[in-house]
Amino acid sequence: MLTIAPPDLPELRANATFEALMWALARPGDSREMPEAGLAAIIDTLVDLECSVFADEPGLRAHAAATAALVTDDVGSADHVFLTSLEGAETQLERLRCGSALYPDDGATLVAMVQHGRGQRVRLSGPGVDGTVALTLAVSPAFWAMRAILCAYPEGFDMLLVDGRSVIGIPRSTQVEVL
């Protein structure tokens, strides 16, 4: 009564991308490999008709629009925010959606291209981290300060930081200490 075709390529790509994102957020600070570099595959994995998307680059906006998501110019109304750079984005990101204590899931997912292993050293602790973990990310202290103000747990936003095919997750539950 039920015949199931094997997965096609988009299905396999989304499945593997999600697995990387899932473990990245489940183990903050751990780097995970996605099947392909960049943000496009993440858009295909997470976003569709039900989502509103902000992106800082025309190609990403077009890609998001093709999924039937609502593409908005207003960071504050987007549930998914895709940035090719976090540099100087603090002011804009102050309007990032953080959900409410009633519905924390309304907090945005911020996906950004950020170099791993360069820049500011930080120490992470919280769920998913065995004690603490230190790592270096090209994210400014000003950004972390802004995040600390916005993320009044369980309100907050969740971050996926992409460098090539690698992704590091920092959910709102993680305490970030700038070293």
Binding site: A14, F18, L21, M22, L25, A26, T45, L46, V47, D48, E50, C51, P104, D105, G107, T109, G128, Y153, P154, G156, D158, P171, R172, S173
Partner: peptide
């Protein structure tokens, strides 16, 4: 996709 979005939020909180 809906489940993936919610599963990520569930991990985050």
């Amino acid at each position: 996709r809906e489940l993936r979005r919610k599963m990520l939020k569930a991990i985050s909180v």
